[in-house]
Design a binder for these strands. Sequence first.
DNA 1: TCTGGGGTCCTAGGACCC
DNA 2: TCTGGGGTCCTAGGACCC
Length: 415
Amino acid sequence: MIGLVDCNSFYCSCERVFNPQTRGQPIIVLSNNDGCAIAYSKEAKAIGFGQMCEPFFEVQERIKKHNVVVFSSNYTLYDDMSKRVMAILNNYTPNLEVYSVDEAFLSLDGYQKYDLLDYGKKIRKDILTSTGIPVGVGIAPTKVLAKAANKISKKNNGVCVLSNEADIDAALKVFPVKDLWGIGSAGTRKLNLLGIKTAYEFKMYKNDKMIQKILTKTGREIQEELRGVSCLEMQQVEDKEKIANTRSFGKDTYDKREIREAIATFTTKTAEKLRYQDSVCFGLSVFIHTNAFKDIEQYYGVATHNFITGTSDTVKMIKAAWHVLDKIYRPGLGYKKGGVILNGIVPKNENQMNLFSNDPDSSDKLSEVIDQINNRFGPRTVKSAACGTRQAWKLRADYISKRFTTNWNELLVIS
DNA sequence: TCTGGGGTCCTAGGACCC
DNA sequence: TCTGGGGTCCTAGGACCC
C-alpha cells in the first residue's frame, strides 16, 4: 500500500501558523512580484477564489469586499515548514518520497496488519500538533489511487483508505477523470471524446492501444494504476537534470546594465544550487523576453553556451552568461523577463576533463568558501560585484511576512 | 499601473552514421 | 523515369505537475 500526505493550502497554512488571528478568515498568497494569486485558504475558496494564477490587480476589488488577508510569497518560510513536516513523516515509513514542497508518498508495504485508517489519523494529528499544518491522508494500492484517495480525504475528515476492489470502484465511479493525477485539460478533452467521464470508465476502457496513442505511455500507466497494477515506483531523491532561475522584472527594463546585473544574479543562484547537489553543468542558456501582455512587437532571445569541461564556478558562469546575453540582446526594447537555465548536468566526480584544456576551475576553493560564508551569515553576504548593488530590476513583495523560523531577527514576538 | 516559477517525462523528427 | 535502409542520438515542443 502507498500513502500520500498532502498539506492543505500549504502556503496559506504556513502563514496562518504565525498569524493565528487569521483563523477563519480567507487568505491568499501571491506569486513572485505580487503578480498573481497562487494559493487560497479554504475560506477564500468558499467565496469563489481558486483559479490558479489569477492576476492580482483583477481580484483587488473582491479582496477588499471580502476582507481577504493577502501575503506575498515567502519561500524561505515555506521551505523550512516543509522540512519540518517531512521530518515527521519520516517516522511513519521506512521509505518516504518527498514529491513536492507540500506532499510526500509513504511506502506502507507490510503495514496491512495495522488499521490503516487509524494510522492515517495518527499521522494527521501528529503533524497538526507538531507544526500547525493541517494535512490530508490518502492510502491505496498504487500512487494514482493514493492521489485520488487523498483528494477524497479532503471532504472526508482528512483520511481516506481505499483498500479493496469494491471500495475502489465505488470511489472511482464518482471521481471525474479530469481530477486524476496526470490527466490535464488536453487529456480530459481527448478522453471525453471517447465518452469517458469518470475514473471508473477510464479504468474499464478496453482499447489500450487507443489510450497509448492519444495519451502516450503516461496515460497507459495511469490506467494500469487505476486497475491496481503499480507502474509508478517510489523514487529516490535524485539530482536535478535542469536547474533554472528566471524572474519577471519589477518593471519593463531598457537599461542593459540592469539586465546584466539580473542575469549575473540568476547565474549566481543556479551555480549555488548546482554546487549544493555536487554537480557541474556543460550548458548554460540565457533568455530575455519583452512584455508578453503588452500589445507591442515581441522579442524572445535565447542562446546557449557550452562549456568544454563541466563547471560550477560562479565567476566562469557569469562570464559565459554575459557573453550569451551580448549575442541575444537587442537594444531599444523594454525587457520584462529573463532567466538562466543550466543543462547537461552531471555529478562532479563524473566530470569529463579535457585533455587539452588549460582552463581548470581555478576558483573551486573560492566558491566553496563563499558558500560557507553565505550559509553562516545569510544568503548573498558575499557575491560577485557583477550582480550589482541597486538591483533596480527587483521584484515587488509588498505583503511579505517574516522569516519566522530561519532568522533570529524575525522571530515571532508575543506581547 | 499591475499578468509566477521550477521541474519531469514522452515523442516526433532531424542529423548523422554505416 | 528511376534516387536504400536501418540504426542511434539529440533536441524542441507538448503535456503535465505543484
